[in-house]
């Protein structure tokens, strides 16, 4: 299997054409699941039992089913029901629903690990519950959640490749198109892998910098 360096070089711009979609999807999923995760964790930790149970049930549902199946569910399901979602949109929906769940668990773990005792210390000093959260718990929890969150962001970027199976024109999709046209599978996959590695390494570096900035 000879490696055609020239072909590899020519493949890069083609693949980069899909980078915008990959990035756009990644950023949207990250942003929306961070928010959705907050909603879920509030429900998960609420005083109302039905709400707690509903959120816990939701979490079990999303973590025990593959995200690909969720994507197919929305893509084909809505199409049949008359609402034609694009591969991108169906993927976005499924990934936000799933990763929002994972984010909420990360938040919950962070909060619980900071611990009830810290909260008590705050209350004993005369803070109101929300103040105690904002001043005592939140800053400490943020430091704790950064590592698992980094892993989750990396996982999100990798999962975006799945939308290529629904014809969304991301890097993976472009790669397959290119291979079908040129049969240069070796070179294209080498490039594609390298590009994903660069993306994931960049995220890891950015998050490491964020950790340092927060003075861990």
């Amino acid at each position: 299997m000879r490696f055609d360096l020239d072909m590899a070089a020519r493949a890069i711009p083609e693949l980069l054409g899909g980078l915008a979609v990959t990035l756009e999807l990644s950023v949207l999923v990250i942003a929306l699941s961070l928010i959705w995760g907050v909603v879920l964790v509030v429900g998960r930790l609420s005083h109302l039992l039905p709400l707690r149970l509903a959120c816990a049930g939701y979490l079990q549902l999303v973590r025990n089913t593959p995200v690909l199946v969720q994507m197919y569910f929305f893509y084909f399901g809505f199409a049949m029901a008359g609402l034609r979602l694009s591969g991108f949109e169906a993927g976005l929906l499924a990934m936000v629903l799933q990763n929002g769940g994972y984010m909420s668990e990360i938040y919950r773990a962070g909060i619980e690990n900071v611990g009830a005792r810290q909260r008590e210390a705050g209350l004993a000093l005369g803070m109101r519950p929300f103040e105690a959260f904002r001043i005592v718990i939140f800053p400490q929890a943020v430091r704790l959640v950064l590592p698992p969150m980094t892993n989750q962001f990396v996982a999100i970027v990798k999962d975006t490749a799945l939308v290529s199976t629904l014809s969304a024109a991301d890097m993976m999709f472009r790669a397959r198109l290119l291979i079908d046209r040129t049969a240069a599978a070796y070179e294209v996959f080498a490039d594609l892998t390298a590009m994903y590695l660069v993306l994931t390494a960049t995220i890891a570096l950015l998050m490491r910098a964020a950790e340092r900035r927060l003075g861990r």
């Binding site: 990798k158 490749a161 996959f189 892998t193 994931t200």
Partner: peptide, 13 residues
Amino acid sequence: LMRGTPMLVMVFA
């Protein structure tokens, strides 16, 4: 390599 590459890429590869 495993942590940075989507499994889908590996499957197609």
